[in-house]
Computed example of a mutant assay.
Amino acid sequence: MQEPAGTLDIRRFESSGSVHTIELGEASLDDLTEDQLLWIDLEGGSEPTITDVLGRLGIDDEVAAWFLDRSAMPELRVRNGWFFVRVVAVRNDGELAYNGTVLAILAGRNFVITSHKDPVDFLTKLRERESHDSGLGMLGADSFTASLLDWHVNSYFDAVADFESADERLETDILDDRHGECLHSLRGLRKAASRLRRMLSAHRGVFAAIARPDFRPGTDGEVNRHFQTVDMHFQRAMEAVENAREVVIGSFELFSNQTALRTNAIMRVLTILAALMGGLAVIAGVLGMNFEAPFFKTGLTGFVIAVSLMTGLALAGLALAWWRKWL
């Protein structure tokens, strides 16, 4: 089955704040001035479509091959003043089912090309926000790419926020004793935390590389600070993801404690009932002895007295247990 052609969005940002949506035939990487920033975003599309778009922009086959690589492994490449980075943005498909969307970014002199097979939420929001009167034209391609990578890291913070909300709901259900399948939910949280950690930790090499001084030695210090800030943001995201695993452990301990408390309460009730029944059994056993005592010759009156005595003792025992809050 042939893949759809995809959606191509091309915008040229001016330093004056104006934004121009242009066609592919109008886009020229060589004619860009220092006061312009060209952003080309390709969503979906088959390999021939991607190759055609990059070819018409003058991108050689070697760089085009980086885009055509469908690997989900984050990667950073540098060539002739351009750099290519592949990252995986996380999305929550519901019920903490975290999946990733591969985002490929190529940055050169005053242009940035992004390509992704599926929609990326933060790119959609960015296009809507910067549709007019945008200040992106004042940024260079490196700084704009740093912003995209920072938005990418934010997608993991959003995922952690969803995770923590689900965990809080589960803990509330545990404390209210309203959750009948806590172990199933805890297992789902554990899988989600592990999934987030695997997805984000794979980017460690990429973000460490862009934060090094030798990544863009020809640019000014402000650009390097932008990339270093993104790396710091990534480190905080890693800490948040690592903390998610600790949150699951804490929820499991809460579940274990609540289970132990319920078990203790049940055992306390059973102990009280066993003590009462044991006492009544002793009385019934004594009354069942075959001695020639006057009480055993009282007939129905003696039977009523014995039953009343046993009932009274049982009620007294239950009242004592209730008063002492054993029940």
Rank of each mutant, 00 (worst) to 15 (best):
E242K: 09
G44H: 10
G299C: 07
L270S: 12
P119T: 09
G180C: 01
L106E: 11
A281V: 02
W66I: 01
A293E: 14
F303G: 11
A265W: 15
L136Y: 11
G58K: 07
R268L: 06
I50W: 03
L68Y: 10
Q228I: 04
E239I: 01
A209R: 15
N257A: 03
L29D: 06
L186G: 08
P217W: 02
G55S: 08
S256E: 06
R79N: 12
N264K: 14
F295K: 00
E292A: 08
V153P: 04
F163R: 01
L327P: 10
S143K: 06
F163N: 01
L38C: 05
S201P: 08
S185E: 08
A321L: 05
E246S: 12
E95R: 15
S16G: 10
G250Y: 13
M267Y: 13
A265D: 15
D61N: 07
I59L: 07
L126K: 12
F207T: 00
A240D: 11
W322I: 00
G250I: 02
V78L: 11
L276D: 14
L287K: 11
W82C: 02
G288F: 12
L276Y: 04
L280N: 14
N110A: 00
L270I: 00
R216D: 11
L103A: 02
R245M: 07
A166G: 06
S131H: 15
S134E: 11
F296L: 05
L183Y: 02
T7S: 00
D60K: 04
W39E: 07
D41F: 14
F252N: 04
G205L: 15
I50H: 01
S165I: 13
R268N: 07
R79W: 15
S131G: 12
Q228P: 14
H20D: 11
V85D: 03
S15C: 04
S155F: 15
L149S: 05
L106M: 13
S185W: 05
L68V: 08
E253A: 14
G312L: 10
L313R: 09
R212V: 04
R198E: 10
D9T: 15
E75S: 10
W39H: 09
S115G: 03
G25Q: 09
T114A: 00
A5L: 13
L149E: 07
Q258E: 11
W66V: 00
P4G: 04
S71H: 05
A265M: 12
V78S: 13
N154K: 05
V53M: 02
L287F: 14
A27R: 08
A240Y: 14
S134L: 08
D167N: 12
E171C: 03
G94R: 10
F255S: 01
R91M: 07
F227I: 00
T21P: 15
T301A: 09
V223Y: 04
S143V: 03
R77E: 12
F67D: 03
H179M: 06
M138E: 11
D158E: 11
A193E: 05
A306S: 14
V247L: 03
V19E: 06
F13K: 03
W66S: 00
D214A: 10
P213R: 03
I50G: 01
S165C: 10
A141M: 10
V112Y: 13
E168W: 06
L32N: 03
M232F: 06
G44E: 05
A306R: 06
Q36L: 02
A314F: 02
L313W: 00
A260M: 07
V85W: 09
P48M: 01
